[in-house]
C-alpha cells in the first residue's frame, strides 16, 4: 500500500540549501527548496510564527496539472500573506533524484515562489500515504496548531477541487471574526 506511487523523481541537494524561510514573507531570501522529513514538516506546520492558517500545496515536477495551477498558489500568497496566510509548496518528487530536484528548484524560481518550499525527504511515494491522497495536486489548509482544517483533492473524479474553491475557503476563514 504504501508507496508506490507516483510520479517522479528525485533527489537532493536541496536539503541543505536553506533555512526554512518564513512562508509569508515576500522579502524572504533566495527561493530555496528545503528537504524535510514528515515529522519535521509537521513540526513546521505547528510553528508558523503568527500565521492564522497555513496553505500547503502538494505537487511534483512531473505533474502537469500541478504546474499549470501553481501560479494560483503564488497569487494567494501575495494576496493573503499579509492577512495571515502562510504558504508552503510540498514537492513529492523523489528525494533521491538530483535531476528532479534541480528541475523543481528551477520551476520554483521561475514561478517566483517566495514562500516556504519543501521537498519531502521520505521514501518515494510515501507522501501520498502521509497525506492520505491518491493524486496530486492536492491542497491542505492547516490551523496555527498544525492541525488540518480542510483538504482539497482530486480523488473523486466527479468532485475534483478548483483553486477558486481554495481561495474562497481561505478568504472566508481569514475574514471570519475570531
Amino acid at each position: 500500500m504504501f508507496r508506490k506511487s507516483a510520479l517522479v523523481l528525485a533527489a537532493c541537494l536541496a536539503g541543505s540549501l536553506a533555512a526554512p524561510g518564513r512562508a509569508d514573507d515576500p522579502k524572504a531570501g533566495p527561493i530555496a527548496l528545503q528537504q524535510l522529513t514528515w515529522a519535521e514538516f509537521e513540526k513546521h506546520l505547528a510553528s508558523t510564527d503568527g500565521a492564522k492558517y497555513t496553505l500547503v500545496d502538494a505537487w511534483a515536477t512531473t505533474c502537469a496539472p500541478c504546474k499549470e495551477n501553481f501560479p494560483h498558489l503564488v497569487e494567494m500568497h501575495e494576496k493573503y500573506g499579509p492577512k495571515g496566510l502562510a504558504v508552503v509548496s510540498l514537492s513529492l518528487d523523489d528525494a533521491e533524484d538530483s535531476k528532479a530536484i534541480a528541475e523543481a528548484e528551477k520551476f520554483l524560481k521561475e514561478k517566483h515562489a517566495t514562500f516556504t518550499n519543501v521537498l519531502l525527504k521520505e521514501e518515494f511515494g510515501a507522501g501520498f500515504d502521509r497525506l492520505d491522497i491518491s493524486a496530486i495536486p492536492a491542497v491542505f489548509l492547516y490551523g496555527p496548531d498544525g492541525k488540518e482544517v480542510k483538504r482539497f483533492t482530486m480523488d473523486d473524479p466527479n468532485n475534483q477541487f478548483t483553486y477558486d474553491e481554495v481561495e474562497k475557503e481561505v478568504a472566508a476563514r481569514l475574514s471570519a471574526p475570531k
Binding site: 507516483a6 510520479l7 475534483q160
Partner: peptide, 13 residues
Amino acid sequence: ETKPFGCGIQYTK
C-alpha cells in the same frame, strides 16, 4: 482493492 498511486488525472469541468 488497493490504493493506486501515480500521476493525477484531471477531469475537465
